[in-house]
Amino acid sequence: MTYADVNGINLYFETHGTGRPLVLLHGGLGSGEMFAPILPALTDHHQVILVDVQGHGRTADIDRPLDVRLMADDVAALIDHLGLDRPDVVGYSLGGGIAFNVAIRHPEKVGRLVAASANIRRSAIYPDMLAQQGQVSAAAAEFMKETPMYEAYQRLAPRPEDFPRLLDKIGQAMAQDFDFTEEVRGLQVPTLVVAADADMAPPSHFVEVFNLLDGGLRDGGWGGEGRPKGGHALAILPGLTHYDLFMSPLFATATLAFLDQDR
C-alpha cells in the first residue's frame, strides 16, 4: 500500500504496468479499483497511476470540502512527488472534473487529458438527476448499506465509520452551482471529451464542450487541417450510460487511441 503526503493530504495510489505515465482518476463514491475491467488494456503500453481521491477508497478524508479544484491540486502535487514528466491524466465523472482542473490549473504538468462523463456546468445535468442528487446526505447511509459502494468503502476506507460524512460532503458538493465554461475554453492541453450516449447530461452538452475547444465548427478537411487547433477530440460512446462507461472496452479503446496518436 503506497501513500504520498502531498498538499496536506495522505493520498493513496497504486502503480501498474510500464510505459508512458497515465494518472487515472475514479468517480464519486468509488476508488481506483473500479477500473479493474479495463486496467489490463491501459497497462499494456502505459504506467498507470491509480489514485484514490480525498475521502474515497484508501485515502482518508481531511477537514476541507470536496472541491474538484482542491483535489486537482492534490493530483498536481502527486505528479511532482513522483517526479513524473507531463503524464497524461484520465478521469471519469468526479475524476473527470478533477482531471479538467488539473489541466486548467497546472497545464505545464499534463501531457494529454481525457475527461469522461464530466459535465462542465451543473445546469447541464437532467433535472430529475439534480433532484436525486439533492437527496444525497448522511441520512441516506442506512439505505445504501446493500450497495456495492458501501461494501467497497467498508472494505477499503481507513475509517469505515466516515461513510455518512462522505455522503454529506458529496451532497454538499453536488448542491453547489458551477460553470467552468471559460476555463475550458482556455485549455492549453490536448483534450478528449468522452461521454456515453445516455449519460447524466445530454450528448449535446458534450458537443458544446467540444465547440469550446474549437471542435465541430467546420469540416475537418481531407488532411485533418480543419480539426481543432489544440489537438482536441470528442467521443460519444454508443450503448453506454454514466454508470457503466468507466468499465467499458470502448472507453479504453477511445482513450488509448487518443493518447497514443502521433506518439
Rank of each mutant, 00 (worst) to 15 (best):
G239V: 11
R122T: 11
L22D: 05
R185C: 10
Y126M: 12
H26E: 11
Y243Q: 05
Q188Y: 05
T255R: 00
G30S: 12
D63H: 13
R86A: 15
G226A: 09
L29I: 00
G96W: 05
A196L: 07
G221E: 09
P65I: 01
S123I: 12
L130P: 02
A140Y: 00
A72L: 01
D73A: 15
E146K: 10
E183K: 09
A60R: 08
L29R: 04
D177C: 01
V207I: 10
V51A: 11
L29T: 08
E14Y: 01
R105Q: 15
E161F: 03
P107C: 15
Q133G: 14
L237W: 00
I79D: 07
Y243L: 12
I125G: 06
I79N: 05
M247L: 06
L256A: 13
D179I: 00
F206M: 06
L25T: 04
S31W: 07
Q47S: 14
G239Y: 04
L29D: 02
M71I: 15
G111F: 06
G55W: 01
L156P: 00
L66Y: 06
N7F: 12
A76F: 04
L22H: 03
I104N: 01
E161N: 07
L11H: 07
T255V: 11
E108R: 10
P65S: 13
G226R: 04
D5S: 14
V194Y: 02
D199L: 04
A103L: 12
A152H: 02
Y153N: 02
M247Y: 01
H205G: 06
A60S: 11
S204A: 15
V102T: 10
M34A: 11
V6R: 02
F100C: 04
D85E: 14
F206L: 06
F13W: 08
Y92T: 01
Q54A: 15
A198R: 13
V193Q: 02
I9L: 12
G28V: 02
A141S: 09
W222H: 01
E142S: 12
F143R: 15
A124S: 13
